[in-house]
Design a binder for these strands. Sequence first.
DNA 1: CTAGGTGCAAACAATTTGCGCGCGT
DNA 2: ACGCGCGCAAATTGTTTGCACCTAG
Lengths: 155, 155
Amino acid sequence: MLKSAPQKDTSFSAELDFIRKLFRKHGLKLTQQRLEILRAVRESGDHPSAEEVYRRVRPVLPTVSLDTVYRALMMFERIGAISRVEILDDRTRFESNTDPHHHLVCVVCRGIEDFPCPAADRIKPPAAGKWGKVLSNHLELRGVCRSCLAKQVGG
Amino acid sequence: MLKSAPQKDTSFSAELDFIRKLFRKHGLKLTQQRLEILRAVRESGDHPSAEEVYRRVRPVLPTVSLDTVYRALMMFERIGAISRVEILDDRTRFESNTDPHHHLVCVVCRGIEDFPCPAADRIKPPAAGKWGKVLSNHLELRGVCRSCLAKQVGG
DNA sequence: CTAGGTGCAAACAATTTGCGCGCGT
DNA sequence: ACGCGCGCAAATTGTTTGCACCTAG
């Protein structure tokens, strides 16, 4: 438990250098708030909503406000540090995975799981070149996840 | 111009029988409002927001309220008469195309175009069966459409 | 007739913004 | 020291709801 620096911090601090440069590059100030907000999204690797991020940083930054979280998240998205996911019937979520990937969404528990899919990445609009310039592909498979499926059978 | 009954009405009235049955089946009343709201989505074949639908029915139903539009749209979705699309950074949109299909979204003009894609329909989560039960596949290609691309080059 | 539907206005929830002080650079 | 960023609270926007009257079946 006390072996060394906390695990979570270790992995994140490795990114600190990169983050610092990124901020510098965009002429942005690296504040404690921004750092913690970014950490809340990047360390977990999941898909928190703005509210959820707010909840996560409160223990560390008790005075932080929800609007600061919003502002920071939007700013991070602008500079490419995180990306946002919009899921049917739900509020906007954020994620640290900025590589091309796709989502499995459980319509019961609203859980989101990432998965890579080169086949989906490769798909182009029909009559290639006729539509315009494609920037990204995002495939969303909606359904019921394993654990919700198990619960339903019993309920 | 006066050749016959208005074109638009012709195609929609062909669906009237189907609509009527669908409503009956669900024990719903077919009111003038609902009919016009449904028409506003189905006749255009595009992807209007609730606000846009409201705007479209106002000329025909000057007293209709936005909340009636919302209620009707949600109800139509429930009974499968239309489906909803959620696009990044934008309000919910509705569409009459309830067959499996995918979307080309222009990030500049926010326009949405449908396209069929059997390849995308066939994609399954990795480690098949491990995630749960997939109900639908939706691929969203984001980019800049032809006409916005043309404008950008000039600007 | 009578339950379900409508319009109005108000409630709600998520997100955005104006403002004056504080802190990172 | 300067100016961006912060927290507060209030404004906006999209959507939902309670209620009394109305209308399709």
